[in-house]
Design a protein around this nucleic acid. Sequence first.
DNA 1: CGCTAGACGCAATAATTTTGCTTTAACATA
DNA 2: TATGTTAAAGCAAAATTATTGCGTCTAGCG
Lengths: 183, 183
Amino acid sequence: MVRPGGRSARVQESVHTAVRELASEVGRDALTVPMVAQRAGVTPSTIYRRWGDLQELLSDVAVERLRPDTAPRVHGDMSADLTAWAEQFLDEMASPAGRAYIRDALLGDPDGGNAGQCSAYAADQIGLVLTRATEHGDETPDVETVMDRVVAPIMYRILFRPEGLDAAYARSLVADVLARTGP
Amino acid sequence: MVRPGGRSARVQESVHTAVRELASEVGRDALTVPMVAQRAGVTPSTIYRRWGDLQELLSDVAVERLRPDTAPRVHGDMSADLTAWAEQFLDEMASPAGRAYIRDALLGDPDGGNAGQCSAYAADQIGLVLTRATEHGDETPDVETVMDRVVAPIMYRILFRPEGLDAAYARSLVADVLARTGP
DNA sequence: CGCTAGACGCAATAATTTTGCTTTAACATA
DNA sequence: TATGTTAAAGCAAAATTATTGCGTCTAGCG
C-alpha cells in the first residue's frame, strides 16, 4: 500500500532535499548514494530499496524541478503569449542545469513515467495558452501540433545538437506554427 | 598519441563484441563491467580507464548500432522516398531495441558527441533523399526543416511519450512538411 | 486499543570501482 | 632489422558501493 503521509513522506522529503543540496555543493556528478543517505540522515539501504539506484532517485528529483511553478504569463495576444512561453521554455531547458535535469529525468526511468510527466507539464502549459486564446475567439492550432512543431524541435536540439540554440529559434518555430496557409 | 590500429583496436573490438553478445544473452540491464571484461578477455581496469564507466561504453556501442547501414531506398518521387525513409526510421527507432540504443547513446555522453553523431546520421540520410529530388528538378524543403518537422517529433515522442507511435504518424509528418502553402 | 503490513535501521556480505605499479606492444627512428 | 619511447593493458591491493537477512518501528485500520 502506498503511504503518502507519515514517515515515508518525511524520508522522501529529506532525501530529495539532500540531493538538491549536495548537487549544488559538490556537483551533480560527484553524488553517491551513501553521501546522500548520510546528509539525509538515512541508511543507504533505505535509498537502494526505495529507489533502486542513484539514477532513479535523480530522475525523481529532476522531474520535480522540471515542474513549472507558474502559469504562462499573459501578454497581448496568442502569438505573444506563445512566443514568450517558448522563449522561456527554451531558456530554462537549454541551460546547463536544465539539460542536466532533462537527462536525469530520461535516464533513471525504466517505464517512461517520469519522461511522460515532463511532457505533460509542457502540454498543460500550452493548453493554458491556447484555451485562453480560444476564449478570446482566436483560432488556434491544437496542443499536439504545438508539441510537434515547437516543443519537440527544441528538446531534440537540446538533446542531440547542443550547438546554437537561442531565443530567435524559439520565435521562428512559433511563427511557423502560427502561420496561416499562404496568400 | 592515438593508436588507431593494433592492440588498442583489438581490445575495443573485443569489448564491443562482448557487450553485444552479453546484451543479447543476459539482457542489457544485467550487464556489468566485470562481466563484459571477462567475456572480452580483458581486465576490468582496462574498461574503466578507457571508457570511465559502463554507460559511456554502452553509449559507444549504441552509436555504432544506430549508424544506418544502407542508403535510403529509391521509390518514385521525393514524397515516396521521404515517406518510406521516415516510416523505416520510426520503425527502427521506436522498437524496444531502438529505444534502448537511443537512451544509451544519450546517456553516457558527457560532451554530447555521440548524440550529435546520431543526429548527423539522420541528417545525412535526409540529405541524400533531398539531393536526389533536387537533381530531378523537384523543389524541396531543406534538411534543417525536415529535421525539425519529422525527425524531432519522432524522437521526442519516443523519448517522452512512449504511447501510440505508428507508421501513420510518420506519414502525416512527412505529408505536412511537404505540403505547399495552401489554396 | 491492539493488529498488521510496509518501510526503515543495522550489520554482515558481496560486488564494484579505483589506484599504484609493472609489463606489453605499437610506432618511430636509425 | 634493431632499438628507444610511450600509450595502453595487466595485475593486485585497497576503497567504495551495492545487496541482503533480520529485527524494529510506525502509519493506517478494524
